[in-house]
């Protein structure tokens, strides 16, 4: 059972809470959400508390992440999109740190659950639709009718656009979820080979070298994926929010 690669995603209740027949227990997932949020918040808060004109190393880490996300959002949406900066920055930092926490052995990976990534994607989509309708009203629906489409094709193109719009939260959430899930399963499987093979005597130990090397390589790759998926999520969020700011494009 210890080598079951799915077990790392098991949710276990730490403090059972039940309200109205629904299970709202404080679980290991909740614990790592809290840990992610507290660690990130404390880091950003404490490193910038001296407000150094010449930043310390840790302060420049906070400043770099700020400017990294700010540039990303400004490039995608222009200055009008900067109102979404707190959202995009929170999403990026939350996903990044949750992914990185997941890389620590025995730690739970919050973003390996579809419902979490889907909820985050829905936050983006609801913000997009809400802001778009509020500021542009009916003009927001121009989003689904690209410029220069012949009149005959408008229904077809518009329906394709609507479908692609509706599939955005799914693709956004599944991409992150699947990457984290697959990466962790792969790691666990290869690491499992190492323990199984090395239990088979001298020959097995030699045979275990290859999966061990692969495990090390995949660990490095997974750190890259952890960052990359947070980045991709943030970039796509920026591009989607651009539709709310400029629906006529």
């Amino acid at each position: 059972m210890a080598e079951d690669p799915i077990h790392q995603f098991q949710i276990s209740r730490l403090i059972p809470i039940e309200i109205g027949g629904l299970d709202f227990s404080f679980t290991n997932s909740s614990l790592f959400m809290v840990a992610t949020v507290v660690t990130t918040g404390a880091f950003l808060y404490l490193t910038t508390s001296s407000r150094g004109l010449v930043p310390s190393r840790t302060q420049s880490v906070s400043e770099m992440s700020y400017e990294f996300v700010a540039n990303m959002l400004r490039d995608a949406t222009g200055p009008q999109g900067m109102r979404f900066f707190p959202l995009v920055f929170s999403l990026f930092m939350f996903i990044l740190v949750a992914n990185m926490f997941g890389m620590v052995p025995y730690f739970f990976t919050v973003t390996s659950h579809l419902i979490v990534t889907f909820a985050l994607a829905m936050v983006v989509m609801l913000t997009l639709v809400g802001y778009g309708l509020k500021t542009h009203g009916a003009r927001f629906f121009k989003l689904f009718v690209p410029h220069g489409v012949p009149g005959v094709l408008v229904p077809l193109v518009a329906s394709i656009e609507v479908i692609s719009f509706l599939s955005r939260p799914i693709s956004l959430s599944v991409r992150l979820f699947a990457n984290m899930l697959a990466g962790h399963i792969t790691l666990k499987v290869f690491a499992g080979f190492v323990t199984t093979l090395s239990g088979l005597g001298a020959f097995g130990v030699i045979g275990a070298v290859l999966p061990l090397l692969l495990t090390i390589a995949i660990t490095g790759l997974e750190f890259l994926v952890s960052f990359l998926q947070a980045y991709v999520f943030a970039v796509l969020t920026c591009m989607y929010l651009n539709d709310a700011v400029h629906p006529d494009h």
């Binding site: 299970d23 709202f24 679980t27 909740s30 899930l181």
Partner: peptide, 23 residues
């Protein structure tokens, strides 16, 4: 586990609390 719907309310609630406060 990711498709175990019985854990969804808890995950959604705690995500809303933690991410909301974080935001």
């Amino acid at each position: 586990p990711p498709f175990d719907t019985s854990t969804y309310p808890s995950q959604l609630l705690w995500l809303a609390i933690t991410f909301g406060l974080f935001y």
